[in-house]
Amino acid sequence: MDHMPENWGRPRSEIYGVYNSAIHNAGPATHTQQPSITGTSVIALKYNKGVMLAADNLASYGSLARFTDQERLIKVGKETVVGISGDVSDMQYIELLLERLIIEDNYEQDGHNLRAPHIYEYLSRVMYNRRSKVDPLWNAILVAGKKDDGSPFLAYVDLLGVTYSSPSIATGFGAYLAVPLLRKIASDDGDEKKITEEQARAAIDECMKVLFYRDARSLDKYSVATVTTDGEVTIEQNVRCKDMSWRFAEHIHGYGTQKM
């Protein structure tokens, strides 16, 4: 019997050599300095009966299209959808937090359910607190649902804890490519009242197509979620970009088989 506790539970020296104690005090604790596997834009806009949002199914590892069926729109509680871009492992951790949140809220069974504004506030606190520890969750998040008064709710929070809301929002590349298109129909508060579900869907599909054209970390397969002000949530999966035309590529140097 070895009576030295420090030797217990370690690889046996006679087989593996003497344990190198430098291993367990190798440097300071490290925090996320950069994302690794990432999801690209999430886009969303309000319309007359709720909020519609979309995110493609790609999880990239740098420029490698690593996973091509990653779902990034998450239903939270009964009538909220959260769309997450950025680091996928952090996204999965946020999913865990939200699942725990909803389960614990349901324990009470008292008729009170967390809705979009409440889930949004909770996420904002989590994101800001993590950034304040300089250990951020590397994501930009959209929260969609309905407000206490029954009108559509849409808001943004990111790894810095920065928050804002607007009738149309997009994260990542979508902020440059999709927002100008979405703002054509939903620019100011109240504009959403004039937008039908069909118009909203057409705008979302158009934006996802444009993003697939120009965002090199995107995919032509995506999910579209709607949250209505009646509290109904639908997530349509495996939607494909339609009616694409790559003819513009013929004139762009660097595409296809052109010679120098």
Partner: peptide
């Protein structure tokens, strides 16, 4: 705003 992007016109 962030950078050159307008995040919201009414915040």
């Amino acid at each position: 705003t962030t950078g050159y992007s307008i995040n919201s016109r009414f915040q």
